[in-house]
Simulated assay, not measured.
Amino acid sequence: MPLTGTGDTVAAAAAAGHAAAAFNIIQIEHAEAVITGAEAANAPVILQISENAVRYHGALAPLARAALAAGERAGVPVSVHLDHVTDPALVGEAVELGLHSVMFDASTLDYADNVKATADVVARCHAARVWVEAELGEVGGKDGVHAPGVRTDPVEAAAYVAATGVDALAVAVGTSHAMLTRDAELDYGLIGALRRAVPVPLVLHGSSGVSDPGLVEAVGRGMTKINISTHLNNAFTAAVRDHLAAHPATVDPRRYLGAGRAAVATEVTRLLGILRQDRQDRPA
């Protein structure tokens, strides 16, 4: 099946009243697992490559090209997204490689500098028909997700979108990256207020820390793109540990990586079923 633009996948999810699922990948087994899980759910999916993953591999091209090639062979729509990039040069490389979207993260800058840097990236990417996500607020800020001032302000968010021209906005509503437990306390009232104020899709980062019911509620209140990474790494690593414990003589990486890949595929299918439930209209 031909690769699909991230913007098309997100727009279709919004029109259908559910969420687009975006799963981070670190190696080819992750990409294969996510696609296999999406095919079992008969659902489109977004493969995300973070700047940290690029740093791990030493370059974007090898993993990005592998993800694009895997997506081309998929039986469901697949798009490839560069996640949490802070280096504009890496954005340019993603555009040249043919990635469908980028998430440019200037959230650590003050507001004016964030707007300027993001608007510059948006102009370059839109010229190449590449969809752009940005962030306002601190997802898992240095002083904690519930510290004063780290949440995204709806009025400021609307002004930010107008000033930068971004296609989607990641917002800080109580999640944190790399959570190993699923007990994040989301501010659902704030999600509703942001949905009413912001004219582009809202993105939930740090979704690994959100329970299944919490994900359903977040989507119901207005989140349209849901990013998940650590939760899948948990599933992958647990399956590898179990395999090696049961088969201590194993030396062929395909054996234990295959177990990890199968575990991730199963969890992707399950999560897609949750995220693609019809949105419930609830009071914010």
Rank of each mutant, 00 (worst) to 15 (best):
L3K: 13
L3W: 08
G5N: 12
A12E: 13
H18F: 11
H18L: 06
A20D: 10
A20V: 04
A21V: 10
N24L: 06
I26F: 09
E29H: 12
H30A: 09
I35E: 04
T36N: 09
E39I: 03
N42L: 05
A43G: 07
V45G: 11
L47M: 08
N52T: 10
A53N: 02
V54P: 04
R55A: 07
Y56F: 13
Y56T: 07
L60A: 00
P62W: 01
P62Y: 04
L63R: 03
L63M: 13
L63C: 08
A67M: 05
A69S: 15
A69R: 14
A70V: 05
E72Q: 15
G75R: 05
V76K: 01
V76H: 02
P77F: 01
H81L: 13
V85L: 09
V85K: 01
T86C: 07
T86K: 12
D87V: 00
P88N: 01
P88H: 02
A89T: 00
E93A: 00
A94W: 02
V95K: 03
E96R: 09
G98C: 08
M103P: 05
S107R: 09
D110T: 02
D110L: 13
Y111L: 15
V115R: 00
A119R: 15
A119P: 02
R124P: 01
C125Q: 08
H126L: 06
A127Q: 11
R129M: 03
R129P: 01
W131K: 03
V132R: 06
E133L: 04
E133I: 06
A134R: 05
G137E: 09
G137K: 13
K142G: 00
G144Q: 12
V145A: 15
H146A: 11
A147K: 10
G149K: 13
V155I: 10
A157C: 03
A157T: 02
A158T: 06
A159W: 00
V161A: 02
G165A: 10
D167M: 08
A168P: 13
V173Y: 01
T175W: 05
S176E: 15
L180E: 09
R182E: 15
R182V: 04
A184K: 00
E185Y: 00
D187S: 04
L190C: 06
G192Y: 00
R195M: 03
V198K: 08
P199V: 03
P199H: 07
V200I: 04
P201V: 07
P201Q: 08
H205R: 12
G206P: 00
V210P: 02
S211L: 01
V216D: 13
V216S: 12
E217R: 14
A218S: 15
I226D: 14
I226F: 10
N227D: 12
N227K: 08
S229A: 14
S229Q: 05
H231V: 04
V240S: 06
D242F: 00
H247E: 12
V251F: 06
V251R: 08
V251P: 07
P253G: 03
G258E: 07
A259R: 12
G260W: 13
R261C: 07
R261W: 09
V264G: 02
V264W: 04
T266Q: 12
T269P: 00
R270E: 10
L271W: 12
G273D: 12
Q277E: 11
D278P: 15
R279P: 14
D281Y: 01
R282K: 08
